[in-house]
Design a protein around this nucleic acid. Structure first.
Lengths: 121, 121
DNA sequence: TCGACATATGAATAATCGTTCAAATGTCGC
DNA sequence: GCGACATTTGAACGATTATTCATATGTCGA
């Protein structure tokens, strides 16, 4: 692992940066949240819910172009992280966005990043 | 794959949602960007650069607690997506954040998400 | 109760990703 | 040029992740 060989290191600056570095908990949470948003299928689900309000799994699958099984798995992940919430009515399950930070992030990203310099290589 | 069985589907709503669904290009770019931010090591690198301004690989490795090889690999990824840029001076390589949308996203996320309701299950 | 249906789940495969080690590149001081 | 050094790179391995198929759960209408 070799955390810090003492070669070219500017010890003072490194110490300062380390002192203000967000703790492992925050970094871990952040990376998990971004991980949730790093899949096109899940992104499309969120986009659909942002537009459609409350939708059943079947409609979500159709609107996002994936199988119902895939949609269900993805929704389960999002649900376990409180990004979406479910309302059950009979044999249907209706999903909608939860008021989470993730919603804000996604909303900002999708509105702010339309048409501009690409991010790809 | 089974894109749309015509069972319980509310065809009208599905059609509408599909019509405003961001295209594959945008969705792909977005998921890539979020993917870049979904790793604790890369997140720490960005946090260090946000605080430290411009730093060499050796300092970045020390400040983020990873090997120089790991840091270099991560920086390479971030560089290829124009999230960071490099300035070379002799045998050193100095990295700093680029003025990308990713910086804005990360900045917002890290300042807005400090200490609050967890996102874990 | 029976069969069709909406959704959920588990297990298995395949693909992707992060980390590490070893080695390569290019630079500096002697 | 030689050796030490900062960084980069490639390949290999292990771990995580997405996707699929098959099946399970629970609900509705007849």
């Amino acid at each position: 692992m070799a955390i810090a060989p003492d070669a070219c290191v500017d010890a003072e600056r490194v110490a300062h940066v380390r002192s203000v570095m967000p703790d492992d908990g925050l970094v871990g949470d952040l990376s998990e949240v971004f991980g949730l948003l790093s899949d096109p299928g899940r992104l499309r689900l969120l986009a659909a819910l942002l537009e459609g309000g409350e939708m059943c799994v079947c409609d979500l699958a159709a609107a996002t172009g994936q199988s119902m099984s895939a949609a269900s798995h993805a929704l389960r992940l999002l649900r376990s992280h409180r990004v979406v919430k479910v309302r059950r009515a009979g044999r249907m399950a209706y999903y909608q966005l939860a008021d989470s930070h993730v919603r804000l992030l996604f909303d900002l990203a999708i509105t702010h990043m339309r048409h501009d310099g690409k991010t790809s290589e």
